[in-house]
Write a protein that binds this DNA or RNA. Sequence first.
DNA 1: AGAGCATATTTGTCCGACAATTGACAAGCT
DNA 2: AGCTTGTCAATTGTCGGACAAATATGCTCT
Lengths: 235, 235
Amino acid sequence: MIMKMANSRSLHARVVGEIGESIVSGVLRPGDALLGEAQLAAQMEVSRTILREALKVLAAKGLIETRQKTGMRVRDARFWNHLDPDVLSWRCASMPTEDFVGKLVEMRAIIEPAACMAAARRRDAAQLEAIGAALDAMEDAPDLDAWAEADLRFHEAVLTATNNELLSSLFSVIETSLATFFVMSARTAKNFKYSLPQHRAVYEAIRRRRPNEAAEAMRAMIDDSRTNMRKPSRK
Amino acid sequence: MIMKMANSRSLHARVVGEIGESIVSGVLRPGDALLGEAQLAAQMEVSRTILREALKVLAAKGLIETRQKTGMRVRDARFWNHLDPDVLSWRCASMPTEDFVGKLVEMRAIIEPAACMAAARRRDAAQLEAIGAALDAMEDAPDLDAWAEADLRFHEAVLTATNNELLSSLFSVIETSLATFFVMSARTAKNFKYSLPQHRAVYEAIRRRRPNEAAEAMRAMIDDSRTNMRKPSRK
DNA sequence: AGAGCATATTTGTCCGACAATTGACAAGCT
DNA sequence: AGCTTGTCAATTGTCGGACAAATATGCTCT
């Protein structure tokens, strides 16, 4: 009686997740040798075929390297695709370090104001509408979950409105940063809409096609959330 | 007599490259259905096992999705991991469009000044030394190839000096952008060192720990390279 | 002791088989 | 007729075994 239903994902997805998380979270350190394919497959209770599919995916993300006879080793962190959505989420699976949260916020502070500027210049009507719809959903959000969902949609819509898919691909970073922020500030669930005016300011600046104002409004919003995240550690 | 040596890479790497490039370059359009695994494997002259390893990697990059019974389809471009080093390089394999080059430069203009600022604040002695070494190599470069190699190292060293691995992971974008620039400006191979003073200015600002000066110097350098890239199309 | 060789171990590749999923179609019921 | 239901078939998902290729290790011979 095996309870495989723990994760409904396909087998190889489960294996990728387990090993990937072990590596990114530091259980397996760079330079460590993974046991051979055969033993690893047995330990995970999958066939070698499936394990190898998973290993190829991890290798594509830069997490491991494999050479014949020597076996597989965890690569040094500087080779990892840190921007890969999976790598990011694995990194936050076990409560992210304060250090990492700081790096996420730094990325937001670099990306989002610049994205607002680009969006204010190049957004079309439909893209503005998408941002507005997210803003409305934030305003009508009955609880923190609904707010969080709409908030993510807002920031994604802004990225999309830049019409630069390289920029919008960075949404996974913003997503991870915001998700972390939500769990860290869950206790202050009472007035979770406090940042609505700031979001509205961003929307208005983009609507009126004012790049500098949009960037400035976004910068203010990020600064604000930065200080709000420091509060818990101050107590 | 099969000439497999065309690409010395392993089989699955070759398959990943071929299919990935077909998708990213537009030969296969989003929504297109790939033939079944069996036929595809036969067409590529590899076993289904190898093909499947390749497909999993492509799926991990967001390029394809696979469902039972339906088969495999190319996903919409908005799901692609545009920042994945492989995806970036595939995109430039067949002469990148002017539109894409513009997006690459926009990314540089966002990332690198911010990175210079962070590097000026947080770099340690060894990281400064790495930047300086790359600068020296640029100065001593005998030809364009040596210059290009040192130039890449310079920008990578700056990214590394930010001590934010998320930021340094964006090097693949800068790398692609610079590589494109080198091939587009190959004709002006005579005075290929014209940007040396600008690089030196960046180095000096980082050495003296002047964030704003460093960012400004980098901005000037990017603006300059932007105009130099427009020249060919002006004629 | 050093160079070269034999060997064993590990990954790379291939094959054939069966299970699971699910779109499509046909049959039957209301 | 329209809807439901059940069967079928096509495709991916998973498995195990087999052999090839590469190479670290240790042995042998000089």
